[in-house]
């Protein structure tokens, strides 16, 4: 068995007066791709943001390789080797694609070989290298956001709904990229609504509802059990298939 990279134990998160996470227990094993499923408003995004330190947990334990990181500032969490691809993509629209990538490479400049590897999956980035990121299409922005997260080797990548509103061809490229990252030993925590996409990539799966994890297990088991899918995911599954 692999070691746990990130572990949440009874984590609560409040945003203003709202109690969003109500005792989340989640384990992200090292080297695996864990998918976080659940309907809108279940707390998936808040879960990622809490790990990233963008919201502070109000109770519970949040650990990285066994070390408590609850209450850490976001930059310090990022420096542990965690990258974040938010649902809004977080592209710097006034900066060029190149500048977005240079900024993401904390070493100062992107490694040309790694860049070529990224261009292999997302050729549009090469083409629009010197263009302001604001002019890219939605799919191209999503490519850039993922490319930024992987421009340097990271231990964990948090990805929030990367397929939302994205063309199938780009989704295929994403699947390829995530597979290769996983092969290279990168751990991925993926929030997803698109079950087919999630099922094709996921090793482990956790399902959230009302701020709690209501199911955790292997993706293969869930993919094979139609009744369980219906019970856990209900209508949201039909919409996306």
């Amino acid at each position: 068995m692999t070691a746990d990279l990130v572990r949440l134990e009874g984590v609560h998160t409040h945003i203003g007066q709202y109690h969003i996470l109500q005792g989340v227990d989640l384990v992200v094993p090292e080297g695996e791709l864990t998918v976080l499923l659940g309907r809108n408003g279940a707390g998936k995004t808040t879960c990622l943001r809490t790990i990233m330190g963008l919201w502070q947990p109000s109770a519970g334990r949040l650990t990285w390789r066994g070390r408590e990181i609850g209450g850490w500032a976001t930059p310090d969490i990022a420096r542990l080797g965690i990258a974040y691809v938010p649902e809004s993509m977080g592209i710097f629209a006034d900066l060029t694609v190149a500048e977005n990538m240079v900024l993401a490479a904390r070493a100062g400049r992107p490694d040309p070989r790694r860049l070529d590897w990224i261009f292999g999956f997302f050729p549009a980035l090469r083409k629009f290298w010197d263009f302001p990121a604001g002019v890219l299409s939605g799919g191209q922005k999503q490519m850039l956001s993922i490319a930024r997260a992987v421009i340097e080797p990271r231990d964990l990548i948090l990805v929030d709904e990367p397929t939302k509103g994205i063309a199938p061809a780009i989704i295929e490229a994403m699947i390829g990229a995530f597979r290769e990252l996983k092969r290279g030993g990168t751990t991925i925590l993926l929030v997803e609504q698109n079950f087919r996409f999630a099922a094709s990539l996921g090793d482990g799966v956790a399902v959230m509802d009302d701020g709690r994890i209501v199911h955790a297990g292997r993706m293969a088991d869930l993919a094979a059990d139609a009744a369980l899918q219906t019970r856990l995911l209900g209508l949201s599954l039909d919409q996306h298939q």
């Binding site: 930059p75 420096r79 977080g90 900024l103 904390r106």
Partner: peptide, 9 residues
């Protein structure tokens, strides 16, 4: 927020 998430203080 995104600059912080990239690891800059």
């Amino acid at each position: 927020e995104m600059v912080e998430a990239l690891g800059y203080r």
